[in-house]
Computed example of a mutant assay.
Amino acid sequence: MADDRLALTVGLGAVLFVVVGIVQLLFDTARDVWAPSAVALVTALVLAAECLMLWRRRTVIDRFRAPVLVTMTAVVVGINPLVYIAFTGIAYPAIGTLLVIVALGALVPYRWIAVILIALVNVASAGFAVGFGTDVPLGSVVLQLVKADVLAVIIALTWRRTESRLHRANDLITELAITDDLTGLLNRRGIGERGHVALDNALIESRPLVVGSIDVDGLKQVNDSHGHAAGDQVIEATGAALRWLLDADQLAARIGGDEFVVVLVADSESRLRDLQARVVESVGSLSQPVSIGWAVPRVGETITLTGLLSESDRNMLDEKRRRRHPQLDSTID
């Protein structure tokens, strides 16, 4: 959506420069106005090409190409009023130059690129004012440039502050979207997003990983006997027992009413076993018993988070049945 708005903004800029070029050529009575008009139309073509690139091939503009593209666009736009002054000899009032300075401060997101370009526009404008002469003192020209510079700085600082607040708000919204309200652990969406990343990284780095499914036994009886508030307290206590995993760069989530999931990654098998033992110890100390099932990736098999979650869930259900009916195990034995 943000890319669509950017493409639309650049496209509107292209239309604006087409209008400027045509109107300037038809109605501006200054000498040699054809040159700045031609530059305005070329600028429109450049912006139209960028609009098409943003709309159709967004992946082309990565974090390495973006500064180059922004700088080229700013230079093309910024040269327009300077070409006008150079060919018409009208250095004051340089409204176009002042607008370009403000636009550079507002639209160029790279601070030092914006500063350098604004400084170059200032120097060029003052130089043209000296070379071509104006009806006002040079000090008045410089004062107008300084006013534009100050306005550009104010707009840039305001935009940076607004952008920072938007980033923080987006981060907060993202965090809330993947967080379980009752426990503070990840929710189903959160474990889906971060679990896939953890699994992929573990496979790439050849690090051992295990997925665990945890189910609180007898939660329905707690709710029926003592009310849902008591059941919520059991859920909160289980979440608190697993929250240390998040601080240890591990993953823990509540994916349903009484269902929890952990994804553990370690540098060695022994460290992974230690993490598993600590999880068992943490939930084993709760007042309400739990059932746990584990699943580990197997060499030669297709490994997916969904598959590991399904396997750990089956193992957890087997564990729950054994806990409820221990005589079945003895019968089988």
Rank of each mutant, 00 (worst) to 15 (best):
L6V: 00
L6K: 11
L8P: 00
T9I: 01
A14S: 11
V15F: 13
L16M: 11
V19T: 00
Q24I: 04
L25A: 13
W34F: 06
S37D: 05
A38T: 00
V42G: 10
T43L: 09
V46P: 08
E50G: 10
E50Y: 14
L52E: 07
R56F: 15
A66L: 08
V68Y: 13
T71C: 11
T71E: 12
V75F: 10
N80T: 01
P81R: 10
V83M: 13
I85C: 05
A86E: 09
F87I: 05
G96Y: 12
L98I: 14
A103R: 02
L104P: 13
V121A: 00
N122W: 11
V130A: 14
V130W: 09
V130R: 01
L138Y: 09
S140K: 07
L143G: 07
D149F: 13
V153H: 02
A156M: 06
T158H: 14
E163I: 03
H167C: 06
E175H: 02
T183V: 10
R188C: 10
R194K: 05
G195M: 10
V197E: 10
L199N: 01
D200T: 09
S206H: 13
R207Y: 05
D217V: 11
L219H: 11
K220M: 01
N223T: 06
S225E: 07
H226R: 01
L242M: 09
W244G: 06
L245E: 01
L246N: 06
R254Y: 09
R254N: 11
L264Q: 03
R273S: 10
D274S: 10
G284Q: 03
S285W: 03
S285E: 13
S287W: 15
A295F: 08
R298N: 12
E311A: 12
D313H: 00
L317P: 04
D318H: 15
D318A: 12
P326Q: 01
P326D: 00
L328K: 05
D329E: 14
